[in-house]
Design a protein around this nucleic acid. Sequence first.
DNA 1: GAGATTTGACCCCA
DNA 2: TGGGGTCAAATCTC
Length: 182
Amino acid sequence: MNCTEPCKRRRVQRWTILTSVPHFDGYEWRKYGEKNIQGYKFPRSYYKCTHNKDQGCPATKTIQQKEDNDCNPPKYEVIYSLHHICKTMGTNTHLDKKYSSAPINNTSSTTTTSSCQANSSQPLLTLVADQLCPMESMLLSAEPQIEENGGIENSNTKSSPSTDLDFDSEWAKWLLSCTEKA
DNA sequence: GAGATTTGACCCCA
DNA sequence: TGGGGTCAAATCTC
């Protein structure tokens, strides 16, 4: 990471979702880091969009398992940063292949030592994975402006604020609906 | 062998 | 100065 300019790491769009199915959001993610966070029982995992390289998609998310509710089912705080610009919404091929038969606690890498195997292996995962995001058209129409150097700190000002708010809101609703149905 | 994950180190901000 | 976020080499999996 090069911060030749005043670092804008904190000035990105962020929104938080509380869900029991943090991996099923219609996108493909690749894990790039994990850290133990002070005050949290479980490590925080860091993910980038799989298409970060080939399509320059800047989207990232962090998944933090809540220290309470680690059963029935475990709850995860998912913090999304920046919108996707990749065009793979709703395919779920990667997710289906990777997660459809795996207990969710195993998808969050190493140390989620939940003992809730019965709940985590429920078909709810397939239900959510099969659900397509209704905001695909919004995603395509609300692409943030990407600068040549990859920085997107101006996306808030270049794109319509109301569009971003609508997108965030709809996106949050969709994720919550997935969680509820699960 | 390619791509994904793990893990320790590094960087930046509060 | 410590904690959070990211990088990148090593390792793993398919």
